[in-house]
Design a protein around this nucleic acid. Structure first.
Length: 210
DNA sequence: ACATTAAGTGATT
DNA sequence: AATCACTTAATGT
């Protein structure tokens, strides 16, 4: 774990901090599709992504989901930070998009390190900022883009976090993430295929326009 | 061969 | 863009 930690965070954190992370952090490997955080659950640990990707979802009162953004290697969830400052309930759901390796850090350490390590403080603030920007981008997408543009963007995002232009998913899953119906996804996908932007196969879609 | 699940289609709102 | 009702195609047992 120390080796992967250094590869991904070595340039960010000083050796003492890395050593502390190794000491208190709990290494965890999560299989694809497994849930690692649900809405309403208390937050006690903060995740540092080593490999893989995690999708962050919001849920409405009817239980329908909507994808907010992806977390990738080197990312952390800034929501954790705001949660440990006040109320300790999660507002979101986190599901492993791919097989994911991460280190869990107790939130107590998070607060202590804020004062002790300049690099940690910087990291948290940066992370908070990027999360905010990603949120704004999804708001823009929802508000201003048409369904077909949203769909293409979603596929491109998926291809990106998986590091593979062959996206392994079903129309129904996409519809779920985008909070629309499967029929609509099927029709728009066919349109995108005719436009030469993607190529469809059963259970997988090749993204050509990246 | 049959059941199950994924994807395609036309019509309606 | 959503929903319904139905068809067709692919896949597992």
């Amino acid at each position: 774990m120390k080796a992967i930690l250094e590869t991904n965070y070595g340039y960010l954190f000083e050796p003492e901090l890395l050593a502390e992370i190794t000491r208190v952090g709990v290494y965890k490997k999560i299989g694809q599709g497994h849930q690692l955080m649900d809405i309403g659950e208390p937050i006690t640990m903060m995740p540092l992504l080593l490999t893989g990707a995690i999708k962050i979802l919001r849920e409405d009162d009817e239980g329908d989901e909507l994808l907010l953004y992806f977390l990738e290697t080197g990312d952390t969830c800034a929501m954790t930070f705001s949660c440990c400052m006040g109320k300790n309930k999660s507002e979101i759901r986190a599901v492993a998009e791919t097989e994911t390796e991460l280190v869990l850090i107790p939130i107590e350490n998070m607060e202590i390190w804020m004062g002790r390590y300049k690099s940690w403080q910087q990291f948290i603030l940066d992370s908070y900022h990027t999360r905010m920007m990603e949120l704004l981008e999804t708001v823009d997408t929802l508000a201003f883009l048409r369904m077909d543009e949203r769909l293409l963007k979603h596929l491109q995002d998926k291809a990106k976090v998986n590091h593979d232009d062959l996206v392994h998913t079903t129309h129904q899953d996409i519809a779920f993430d985008m909070h629309t119906s499967r029929v609509v996804v099927s029709r728009l996908l066919k349109k995108l295929e005719n436009e030469g932007k993607i190529k469809m196969h059963r259970n997988q879609i090749k993204v050509l326009d990246l």
